[in-house]
Design a protein around this nucleic acid. Structure first.
Lengths: 222, 222, 222, 222
DNA sequence: TATGAATGAGATTTCATTCAT
DNA sequence: TATGAATGAAATCTCATTCAT
């Protein structure tokens, strides 16, 4: 929200001429606006206002509202991908590694509501933009590979059941983690629960990890 | 708002359609349109077109776009509530009852995408409409009571762990079931999976039930 | 230019509610504007201003700028077609009938600069709109049939040469008549001639008739 | 307008293209663009794109869109003037000289559609630019002098009627020749004729010459 | 009960031009 | 000499809503 401090040199009438900073500021403002109001609901004017620039400048940089939206989507996917890469799991026992993945994921969603909202918006739009732009179709997500490695390790050690698919596991983690954010308003209202970042984060996060780990445990022979 | 008395001149050629049928048709069309395009994206004209009436008539019946939207939300919540009431669980062993609840829920989401999309849309709107209209704040969902009863029964019989909260269980079931529908486009594209109603419904549904039931099992003493 | 007198009954806040009159006024204003500035140069706002209505109303009536333009084209073609139908040539000797056609055509162009300018504009646009709209592709022009009949009569009487094609004759008449209007600014400036309606209309009109009639005369045997 | 002195910092990596070649390339691109889309419809960006330069550079060279347009007009008028000068008529009998002038003119229009379209555009703009710029008001066209000389010769020899004005003759030649190009789209569509360069050029060209020569012949005494 | 007509506010996009470097 | 950045003005179109009948 806080406007970047401008390294004011030479008090010019025109705008600061720091195109990269401008681009980045626009992108941040656009992320917030699209996340808050959806593609259609977002207003170029509002984005311009958030950055003290003009609609025309945004079009100059990005070409159109849709291209701006795509740039936003690309950036948030790049960010989660980069964050996922930071997970160091190799030295952890499989169960701990899983717990770490779940916690990381859960926290990321709670801490990056914009990302979650953008993903939801894109789904509500039936993946229209993603479909049309190859760069968004091929976003790879390291988390699945990491999860696969950990699961394989656990299976080799005999601590995880042999018949689970990493993608199913990731889906379950994502589903249980996202729901808290995506459905916080209706669910919270209907069942009188604080959810999302205002809910009892540690408790919910632990529950999710428990559910996942319980599921991964080998089924005891009768 | 005050309606003029008609100064009937020239034998009133207006169409005398039954208002109730009209109202219901508009509601169905509106459900489809709001589900497809979200609140902002939905167009009164499009809804009018789907029903061969006019924007003016819709406003005449419902007052405004927002009130129409609320009527839609109310109806879809009433429908799921009614459907949930149809579940007969009393004669089933606890585990079977849980499985039945999961399957019912999963199937309902897959079969009623409009409901899911509307719930998501309302959440994306941060519950704005729900908040303002009491009738939507108090929608009670029988499923949670049923779930509570089944869980209590299972706990009494010693087949379910004692420390689970019915709302948490419902949340997990909803999360795992909805994700398949809500995130089908991005997740499907990123991980090359058919999802939603086009995915492998029985398999996913079984996984969800397994996850839930595994979690409910008492933790074995070491 | 003069605003239509409004048959003021019941001083209402809203606009006069005389849709047909409105439509027609908009069409006239649009004709003037498109003729004056071309398709691209014409402004919906300017048209609205000329009719004391708003852009939105024009869109309500015509749908878009392009559709409005098409309605204009349709109307001016309908007008010349109707005017052409009014020519009574049957009782005239062939040469007099030709002279009459030439004079009518010449006068029509001089008196309906808007028509001429619209035709020119459509040609400058490479017939883009005409191509796309069937109703404009099939505008039939009675003048050619009339011309054909007169020429046939003249040929039968031996007063016209036998080897001329009515379409060629029409083209020559149109070319000689239009040029005075279409090229009045450049030609007038370059050769210091008043042209169009400000030029010596009777003289130019007589020249055109002479040129055409001379051409139609049978070539004298040597 | 005052150009800043370059405070050469960092070894001046600017492209050192020869300005004259640039100027000429821009002029050609502008001719094509203005001819294709008219003054208003033409876009500085499109012209820049056709020359791999930028809007800013074009403004730098020509000052403004209007001045660029004027430069274009000046050039095309200079070109036709130069081409007209190339006609060698002195050794031809008057009738042959006239035929030659007609054919040259007809061919020039067919072969230089851009010129024709620019002239038409300037007329559609009511000579707005021509009026304001003296250099365009005084473009002299040798063809009229040549035509005057040939007609005088023909009249002296008694092969041309004595009462024709060279400007009228030029106007007729221009009118009959241009119409084929200027009205090719509407006329062609309405009367199912291929026109302009795609039409039957030799035939139409012969007709025009016939019409003109017939008109110039002395009227036979009755 | 029902509706065609009308409107105002707002949305995106285009574009010629200017400026600092 | 040349240009990327920036801007303001304008243009078209959409749309929910209102009103008179």
């Amino acid at each position: 929200m806080a406007l970047q401090v401008r390294s004011s040199r030479s008090a010019s009438m025109r705008k600061p001429k720091e195109p990269e900073a401008n681009r980045s500021r626009i992108l941040s403002a656009a992320t917030a606006e699209f996340a808050a109001r959806g593609y259609k609901g977002a207003s170029m004017d509002a984005i311009a206002a958030r950055t003290s620039t003009t609609r025309a400048l945004i079009n100059y940089y990005f070409g159109s509202k849709e291209r701006l939206y795509l740039a936003v989507l690309e950036r948030v996917y790049a960010e989660i991908r980069d964050a996922e890469r930071g997970l160091a799991l190799d030295h952890l026992p499989p169960a701990d590694a899983i717990r770490r993945i779940v916690e990381f994921t859960y926290d990321y969603y709670v801490g990056h509501e914009s990302f979650v909202r953008l993903v939801v918006a894109e789904n509500q739009a039936k993946g229209r933009h993603m479909k049309r732009f190859p760069s968004l179709r091929t976003v790879n997500r390291p988390i699945v590979d990491m999860l696969g490695a950990v699961i394989a390790r656990g299976q080799a050690e005999g601590v995880f059941r042999p018949d689970v698919d990493p993608i199913d596991v990731h889906m379950a983690i994502a589903a249980l983690g996202m729901f808290n954010v995506t459905n916080q308003y209706t669910f919270g209202t209907l069942f009188q629960r604080e959810m999302g970042s205002k809910g009892d984060v540690p408790r919910r996060r632990r529950i999710v990890a428990d559910v996942i780990l319980r599921w991964l445990e080998p089924v005891p022979a009768v």
